[in-house]
Amino acid sequence: MTVATVLEPKMPKCWRQETKPHKFCPGCGHGDILKALGTAIDELGIQDRVVFGCDIGCSLLSWDLFNCDSIQTHHGRTTPVMTGVKRARPDRICIAYMGDGGGYAIGSQHLVNAASRNEKILVIVANNVQYGMTGGQMAPTTLPGMKTETSPYGRDPESTGNPTLGPEMVAAITPDSAYVARGTMANLRQLTQMFKKALQNQIDGNGFSFVEALSACPTNWRTNAAKTWEFVEKEMTKYFKVGELKAPAKKEGQ
């Protein structure tokens, strides 16, 4: 092994070299989450079968990230577009990638219905507790008391409810053949395993797969590296419990 190969940043094979470095801010969770996804795609050897869909919001910057066929769709509509692809081409591995606004606000009806129909696609929601795209507004996942552009005096659960628990909701409305988990950018090894199981669940034709990934937005949180990690690891996990909620593979004793 030469020194040069050791120093080369480790990039999943399915990432597109020509579009690197990617445009996510330093410390942004998207890069890490998509690296875990890329590793899972590599390890399963499915790069040529993947159709990747991304939403509006910072997730759209992944539109040319992979050497996979990709569609950047409308805000909240990535889930139905990927459902449409899958229904027309069941041999494709369809991944819908979005933020918490796309998943739990504007696209929530699609998430609920795709999950209820047990669509054989993988939906990934990057949860960074606010809207990064339009300047840091409140999201369904914003934590109580957190100040955002549209909750300048802090989120008040009395008037705006509590943070949306996406995987818990999906787990409640899917059959046992669905895979549902919440991972975090703070544990990429675990997140990669979750993506692998979720994709395998789709490959096996079992049913709906859903992974929420806790993510960071230091730019809109205005936090330095230490504060960012503290927030992801300590604050967010108080509301958003990391772990698998449904894992059909386990039941089959695999």
Binding site: K23, F24, G57, L60, T219
Partner: peptide
């Protein structure tokens, strides 16, 4: 060099930080 101005947020680069 930007992409999705106003839709993908305002992005910060390492040299800025």
């Amino acid at each position: 060099d930007t992409m999705g101005l106003g839709e993908a947020g305002t992005l910060i680069r390492g040299d800025m930080l």
